[in-house]
């Protein structure tokens, strides 16, 4: 099983549009949406949820007002500004409150409270779904509103997807990644055979592509680049090609700007099933290149250093 991750650094360059099209072209893939705090892949693949699992992660501190003596010890020790002092009109301390959004569950307040007025509660941070789509099984998730630990949820989504791919003997795991370079992206890069970086010919797109390429290189993951909306600014497209050449990263596709993409989104289908135009042709060629790159260097790839977590 080969695992292909679509990332971008910058948001909105076309990760999900491309992932959905690869899902349609791969014939027999397992799909995973690792953009757990703003997941969109389901809007194009229409998964039917077969199983829902709760994602419990970390803890939050709860204060018992009855027991609290307002000593303020927790207030001075919390480094996450999660403990707030409500004051009376005369400025004296009225009550201690814990902000559940700011609390990182470190337990410092719990361990140090002199009257044991603080307890720790497990945190329901999201949900994980195992679903069926017409393109194959899909694992996706929904992080709770303003919850943390998105990296852990990404890891869980990937683990489930890998298990399914291995059990079903599927040749591909295609993963829609999150934007940025932080914890969810690092988690998404684990055990990946190829990271496809989708960029666009804008100065922001170039800047962010370089950062995420550095990140993938840092973890020893092989990358290839897709330039989306390549005809918006040809000078910048050429600049991307040059940067990639210097970094020895193959530019594997040039996708033209296409209003058909917007229309396919509105209809809710992968663009390769919507359009017979240049965009579909380009994406199909790109997919064939990915397939043949594994056929020609499949043995080598599996020996390459993988990001181990």
């Amino acid at each position: 099983m080969k695992q292909v991750l679509v990332i971008s650094g910058k948001g909105g360059t076309g990760k999900t549009v491309l992932t959905s099209s690869l899902a349609a072209l791969a014939k027999g893939a397992v799909l995973a949406d690792c953009d757990v705090d703003a997941a969109d892949l389901h809007l194009l693949l229409h998964p039917v949820v077969a199983e829902t699992q709760e994602f419990w992660s970390g803890q939050k501190a709860i204060i018992d007002d009855e027991q609290c003596i307002n000593c303020g010890r927790c207030l001075s020790l919390c480094r996450f500004e999660a403990i707030k002092a409500l004051k009376n009109q005369d400025g004296s301390l009225k009550k201690i409150e814990i902000d559940p959004v700011a609390c990182e569950g470190c337990r410092v307040c719990y361990y140090t409270c002199p009257v044991d007025a603080i307890r720790m509660e497990d945190r329901l941070s999201g949900q994980l779904f195992i679903s069926e789509t017409k393109y194959g099984p899909m694992v996706h998730a929904k992080l709770g509103i303003a919850e943390e630990n998105s990296g852990k949820l990404v890891t869980l989504v990937k683990q489930k997807a890998q298990e399914i791919a291995e059990a079903d003997g599927k040749p591909w795991l295609i993963v829609d990644g999150p934007p940025g370079i932080g914890c969810p992206v690092i988690a998404a890069l684990a055990r990946v055979d190829l990271a496809l970086i989708v960029t666009e010919p804008t100065l922001s797109g170039i800047h962010d592509m370089e950062r995420v390429a550095d990140l993938a290189a840092h973890f020893g993951v092989t990358t290839k680049v897709v330039i989306n909306k390549c005809d918006i600014n040809w000078d910048n497209t050429r600049a991307i090609e040059k940067i990639c050449q210097k970094r020895e990263i193959e530019v594997i596709g040039h996708l033209p700007f296409s209003e058909e993409v917007v229309r396919s989104l509105s209809v809710g289908v992968p663009v390769v099933e919507f359009s017979l135009g240049a965009i579909t042709e380009e994406i199909s060629t790109l997919w064939r290149k990915i397939e043949s790159s594994f056929q020609s260097e499949g043995v080598v790839l599996s020996d390459k250093k993988k990001a181990g977590f």
Partner: peptide, 13 residues
């Protein structure tokens, strides 16, 4: 930043 998790909360808080 994009998204809805901790970095966004910290930025808009």
């Amino acid at each position: 930043s994009p998204g809805t998790s901790c970095p966004v909360v910290e930025a808009v808080k």
